[in-house]
Each structure stands twice: as C-alpha cells, then as structure tokens.
C-alpha cells in the first residue's frame, strides 16, 4: 500500500483558497483528470479521490491524518484514459472515457463484492462526442455527428449494477457538451458546433427547443444551468475567445435564456483581473462558483453571484496547473499538475 506525502495545512493561498492537503500520484504516465466521489467500504461511505493518468486510474481513501492511501487501481493497456466521468448518486462505481484525441469508449470501473478485486465493464464504444454523469444515477452520451447522431441516457441501479437505456431525440447538429439544469432534474441542455443550445425533456426524450446564441464566441461550451422564475441561466466557457482590449479574455459567460421564446441575453462576462493573461483551457462549475485553468498555467475562480473573480492561484512549485475540479463530496477545489501532484483547497 502506498501512503502519500504529509499534508500541509497552514499555507494560505491568494484570495479565498486555503490548502488543506496534497499528495502525489507516483504514476509514470501523464496525469489527465481528478475527481472526488463517495465510495463505500465496510458498509461506510467515504469521500474518496479518483486520479486518472493515461494508463491507470486510482482510488485514494482518506486516513485520519489527512493523508491519502491508494486502495484500488485499474489499468488500461490498449486505449489511453481521457477523462473521469463521475455519476452522482451511484456508490462504488466511476466511469471513464478512453480514446486518443476523441472519445472511443466509456467504461465503468467497479470492484467485485467478494474479493474487492478491480473490474471494468465496457458501456459504450464508437465516435463519442460528449458524455456527462447526471443526478439520479444517469449517464448521457452522444455518439456520431450531424444526422447520424445517437443521444442516449443510461440509468444505473444504486449499486452500479443493472441498467436501463433510453434515447433522446438528436438535434441534427453535432453536440459539443451537455449540462444539467439545477432545480429541474428532467431537463438537460447541450451546446452544439453551430452555437445552438438545445433543451431536452429527459423523461420523454423530446427535443424541446433550439436557442441560437450570440456568434461573438465560437464553440461555446455549456457547463451548468439554473432554472429560476421561468428563465434559464446558463454558464458557458469560451475556449476560442480572443482577448479584447476592453474586457481582456472572457473565460466564462452567464447567459439568460427565455425557453419559451428562444431569446437570450448575456448578463455576466467573467474576465481576468488586471495583470492576468490567458485563455480558458479547462474548467468546472458547481453551484455559484466557476473555476478555470488558463493557458498561462494559473487557476482563477469566479463567484457568479458576486460577479467577479474571487481567487487567483498561480502555478505551485514552478509547475503550471493542468486540472481543476470542484469536489463532489464537499466544498473543496481539486487542483492537479501533469506530473501527478494533486492539491486540495478549501474554498
């Protein structure tokens, strides 16, 4: 069993991030993702960390001393791991997307109940364009492009076992990303390659509306949406946005949509504070906070209710950040580097 470095608890970071714990995944391949999930061991559910490198995915459980112990590893020898796909409300199961540049497979990782040995099950294969784990133990994926696209919801049993499948009506446009709607469990959003936001009814599979959004920023990606007072508030990122002299580089945008009329207005542009540069590289949105890794190697955090950047985390130990995720088990921020270092901050 590998036990990680001692954590540091007293370091204060710029803004409102406080370092709680850190560890290094000693894998030799490139670190590609990190996530926090609930995992059940000996009839108790624990908040665990999942790390993914190109050829191995590891589950780390917390020890009393804020150290982390590696308890399970799954190995991938044929196709490299691209991302972790957490599925909320399912314990003892994590999904991963595998592929080279694009996703070719989605696999479920679990342990057999008898000897606790690691197992992996192939769930989907093909030209997978987007995948997202949803509340109520659901996983949505889109396979194919344009008219040959299949959008499918898979529902897991509570123990990760038997599953049910349902098709959603495809939009005849290639889907870039999916986003859940907070406060409306039966609604799902997707962004497409032609800058449309599509809205589905997950219960019936109906495609309810297509909303064309401002063409100022191409290839916008939806991260999360909120339903309030008959309107949809959608958080988009703009990986392809060019820097402008007036606003700097817009990293996230909060857009309000009237689903009835398909009209939309941008209400908040999350730009970098003065002195910071870079474009959106990858990011995560949870509740009212949005975090992004920038091309400069810095992490920036915005409070969407306050409407401004609340924390900037420069590269640590002379190494750029490459990953940022909000924990699914508490209010922590997970920040990762390519060499396997994972830092856990309290926000």
């Amino acid at each position: 069993t590998e036990i990680t470095d001692l954590p540091a608890r007293d370091s204060l970071n710029p803004g409102s991030l406080q370092l709680v714990s850190k560890f290094k995944n000693p894998s030799s391949s490139c670190s590609v993702d990190v996530s926090a999930v609930w995992w059940e061991r000996a009839a108790a559910k624990e908040p665990c960390i999942i790390t993914a490198c190109e050829d191995v995915v590891s589950l780390w459980k917390p020890l009393d001393t804020l150290q982390w112990e590696k308890v399970h590893t799954w190995h991938f020898t044929e196709v490299p791991v691209l991302q972790i796909v957490p599925v909320p409300d399912v314990y003892n199961l994590i999904c991963v997307a595998l592929g080279n540049l694009e996703i070719r497979e989605i696999r479920a990782l679990l342990c057999s109940s008898g000897d606790e040995s690691e197992k992996q099950v192939l769930l989907k294969s093909g030209n997978i364009k987007a995948v997202l784990g949803l509340t109520k133990r659901r996983l949505v994926s889109s396979i194919g492009t344009f008219c040959n696209q299949q959008v499918q919801i898979m529902t897991f049993a509570e123990d990760g076992g038997s599953k049910d499948e349902q098709l959603l009506m495809p939009p005849d446009e290639t889907i870039l990303a999916f986003a859940e709607v907070q406060g409306m469990q039966d609604a799902l959003l997707g962004t497409t390659t032609v800058n449309n936001i599509v809205i589905w009814n997950l219960k019936t599979g109906q495609l309810l509306k297509k909303v064309h959004i401002d063409d100022s920023y191409q290839a916008s990606v939806c991260h999360r949406a909120y339903s309030e007072m008959g309107l949809l508030f959608v958080v988009l990122s703009h990986p392809c946005a060019k820097e402008s002299q007036v606003f700097g580089s817009p990293v996230f945008q909060l857009l309000v949509i009237n689903p009835k009329t398909a009209q939309s207005v941008g209400i908040l542009l999350c730009c970098l504070p003065p002195g910071q540069a870079g474009r959106f590289l990858e990011g995560d949105v949870k509740d009212h906070v949005a975090a992004a890794v920038l091309t400069s190697g810095t992490i920036a955090v915005w409070d969407l209710l306050l409407g401004h950047c609340t924390a900037v985390l420069p590269p640590a130990s002379d190494q750029s950040w490459s990953l940022v995720k909000w924990s699914g088990t508490d209010s922590h921020l997970l920040a990762g580097q390519k060499d396997g270092n994972v830092f856990i901050y309290r926000y």
């Binding site: 009506m169 409306m184 039966d186 609604a187 809205i199 009814n201 019936t204 109906q206 495609l207 309810l208 509306k209 339903s227 007072m229 008959g230 309107l231 309000v256 949509i257 009237n258 689903p259 009835k260 009329t261 009209q263 939309s264 207005v265 209400i267």
Partner: peptide
C-alpha cells in the same frame, strides 16, 4: 437583465414546451 428583450416569460415553460414538441 433587460427581461423585455426576452419576450413573455412563462413559469410553466417546461410543461408547455413538452406539450407542444413532437413526441
């Protein structure tokens, strides 16, 4: 937010769109 730009708002938009959209 200039909600006038967005047209008439319905609190039951999800049910209304579901009843109008093709099955």
């Amino acid at each position: 937010c200039r909600t006038a730009d967005l047209g008439p708002i319905s609190l039951n938009w999800f049910e209304e769109l579901s009843s109008e959209a093709p099955p």
